[in-house]
């Protein structure tokens, strides 16, 4: 059976976080590919080329290096071709208020980023698996909110 291959993209300038993503994606037995962008301008440039495939699942760091994440979420959600992209925002710490704002502005998932690799792997695996269900089944993406 030909399995669906999912494209993940992350926007983060922290090398340690990037390593956690890369290591997890390599180790978990799920069909995913990872694209890394160091800041939002890199992702914007990538998306502006219509030839490039849009990611199915996008991870944004809460404190983006060069842009407010809420403004960026609104911009991304306005793009027609990103309508079916599931967006996760993650951070090591965040106030309840900012988590709610992230959801209101278009994120599907808020993820508390664990510090250790083992915990990170467990959490990311859960996030990816629930994303797969939404990408492959007849579930309502507009109402898809998940906090972990």
């Amino acid at each position: 059976m030909k399995r669906t291959f999912f494209k993940l993209a992350i926007v983060d300038d922290d090398e340690y976080s990037i390593k956690l993503f890369e290591k997890t994606v390599k180790e978990i037995k799920l069909w995913v590919g990872l694209m890394v962008f160091r800041n939002e301008s890199e992702l914007t440039a990538y998306l502006s080329d219509r030839q490039n495939n849009v990611p199915n699942i996008l991870f944004l760091k809460l404190n983006l290096p060069d842009k407010n994440v809420l403004v960026y979420l609104q911009e991304l959600r306005k793009q027609q071709r990103l309508q079916n992209t599931l967006i996760t925002v993650y951070s090591v710490t965040a106030s309840e208020e900012s988590i709610e704002e992230v959801f209101v502005n278009g994120a599907n998932i808020y993820m508390d980023q664990p510090r250790t690799y083992e915990e990170f792997k467990t959490v990311l695996e859960k996030v990816l698996k629930i994303n797969f269900q939404y990408l492959e089944s007849n579930l309502n993406i507009e109402n898809f909110l998940y906090r972990i």
Binding site: E100, L145, Y146
Partner: peptide
Amino acid sequence: TGLTPTTFYNII
């Protein structure tokens, strides 16, 4: 979902 039904409703 990690959210209560009320929180979910308020966000949407």
